[in-house]
Each structure stands twice: as C-alpha cells, then as structure tokens.
C-alpha cells in the first residue's frame, strides 16, 4: 500500500513537472532569443549568446520604444480604471437592485458576447469617425469601457456578499453611493484585483481594434509595433525577441505581484 501510494505520488509529480516545463519553456526560449542573432534563432539555438547589447541598441536606435511602451501603458491603465468602475457599478445595479426589467437587460448584455468582433468592426469604425475620435487613444478607450465579461464576473462575486451589511448601513443612514463606494467595494479587494489583471491583460494584448483606430506612429501600441516588426520580409529575430520580451514583461510583473489576489478574486466569483 505504502509503495503504491509512493509510486502514485511520483506519477503526479512527473505529470506536474512536465506540464510546468512545457508551459514555461517558450518563455525561456524567448529570453534566450533576446541574446542571439537572427540566424541563430532560426537555427533553433537554445543557449545564451552575446547579441543582447547589439539587439537592444538596434531596437532602441531604430524605434521610439519608450513612447510606444508609454502609449500601451496609458491606454491599458485608463481602460482598466474605466472598466472596473463602470462594470462593477453595473454589476452592483444588476445584483443589488434586481428587477425583472433589469434582469432582461442583463441577459441581453450577456448574449452580445457571442457576436464575433469582426462583424462589428465596420459600423464601429463609422462611429469612431463620426465622433472625431479616429487616431486617438480616447476613441480606443471609450469603445472598450464596458466589458461584458467583467460585469458578469463582478455580479458573480457580489452574490456571496452578505446583504445584511448593506441593510445595516442603510439603517445607519448611509447613502447608496457611499454604501457602494466605501462598504462594498473595499470588501471586494480581491475581486477588483482579479478584474484588474483581466482587464489589463485584454487591453494590453488587444490587437485588431487598436490597429484600426490608431493610425499614426506616435499613437502606436506595443502589440502593433511588435507585429509590424515581426512581419518584415526578413525579420531581425534578435531584435523582435527583445521587443516581444519588453511587450510581455509588464504582464508577467503584474501577474507575479498580484497573483494571490487574482486566485482569491476568482475564488470569490465562483462561490455559489
């Protein structure tokens, strides 16, 4: 019995280690790639080389990476703030002020998730032009202010929030916004953190829509930049790898620093 369970445990570890290595290896390769030349990368070299400084020099000499990086940060952070505020408020309304009519609206909102974005692109673009928001970060941010997924996510999390607390606050004479703002929201820190990661992740990695809205070089975001860099007839892969790493780094940093909140936040939303 003892031997069997030991063996079983070993199998489990082997499985987990394999999954871990498979998941992480491409990241390792990306980091290695930043130090190699294009030819070595295509040949599949998996050890560190000495091209890091030349690659970086070329990247920063040829492109205004700082500016592009800042654009991405700006768009992602502003979108994040807007999405969190608007989506959590909406979910609050749907959950704590439930009514038949609003429930219908909620269902309709969820259904829109099924429509592929490609179908909406052209009418959406017409709107952007009509509002004179073409080639502005405002246009990009405004169109993604309400995230259907986040509304759903927040609402799921609110479900486990004890309604008695709200009731008690009302008895104490607190206004509705104060209840939302200083009682409910602070109690759901983990949910907000998880939502923030999700929101940042989607807008940081967003590609198709920024591509259409943003037109000039000084508005460009990281993803647009990396993609144009990687699609040259003969890409400088060493340089591309550095750009890729720079574009991935913020996500990795944010996830590492907030991952405990992230898991807790999702845990809160999946509680029934």
């Amino acid at each position: 019995m003892k031997v069997k369970s030991y063996f079983f445990r070993c199998v489990q570890y082997v499985f987990l280690v394999t999954a871990f290595v498979l998941a992480v290896f491409p990241f390792y390769w990306m980091v290695v790639g930043t130090t190699n030349s294009a030819v070595d990368i295509i040949k599949g070299k998996i050890t560190f080389g000495d091209q890091l400084i030349p690659n970086l020099k070329k990247l920063f000499a040829d492109y205004d990476v700082g500016r592009i990086f800042w654009n991405s940060c700006k768009v992602s952070i502003l979108t994040l703030i807007g999405q969190l505020l608007i989506s959590s408020m909406a979910a609050y309304g749907f959950e704590f002020f439930a009514s038949k009519a609003r429930e219908r609206v909620y269902r309709a909102v969820l259904l829109t998730m099924m429509v592929p974005f490609a179908a909406l692109m052209i009418p959406l673009f017409r709107l952007i032009v009509r509002f004179h928001l073409l080639d502005t970060h405002t246009g990009l941010i405004l169109t993604s202010l309400a995230s259907v997924f986040l509304i759903f996510f927040f609402r799921q999390s609110y479900k486990s929030f004890p309604k008695e607390i709200i009731q008690a606050a009302r008895v104490d004479g607190a206004g509705e916004f104060r209840i939302f703002w200083s009682i409910v929201a602070p109690a759901m820190k983990a949910t907000y953190a998880a939502a923030a990661i999700y929101s940042f992740m989607t807008s940081w990695n967003n590609y198709m829509w920024p591509l259409i809205v943003l037109q000039s070089n000084n508005q460009k975001t990281m993803q647009l930049f990396v993609s144009s860099l990687a699609s040259a007839y003969f890409p400088e892969y060493g340089v591309v790898m550095n750009a890729i790493l720079i574009s991935t780094l913020p996500m990795i940093v944010i996830f590492f620093s907030l991952q405990n909140y992230f898991v807790r936040g999702i845990t809160g939303s999946v509680k029934q």
């Binding site: 673009f125 259409i212 993609s227 144009s228």
Partner: peptide, 19 residues
C-alpha cells in the same frame, strides 16, 4: 509602418465605411 495585412485591413475598413 505596419504589417502588410494590416495596411489592407485598414484601407478596406476606412474606404468601406465611407469616412
């Protein structure tokens, strides 16, 4: 500067929208 497919996509979107 952008990828070739992206030039085409943008050109089509803008021209088709009549903007």
């Amino acid at each position: 500067e952008m990828a070739k497919a992206d030039v085409e996509q943008r050109l089509n979107t803008v021209l088709a929208s009549g903007a």
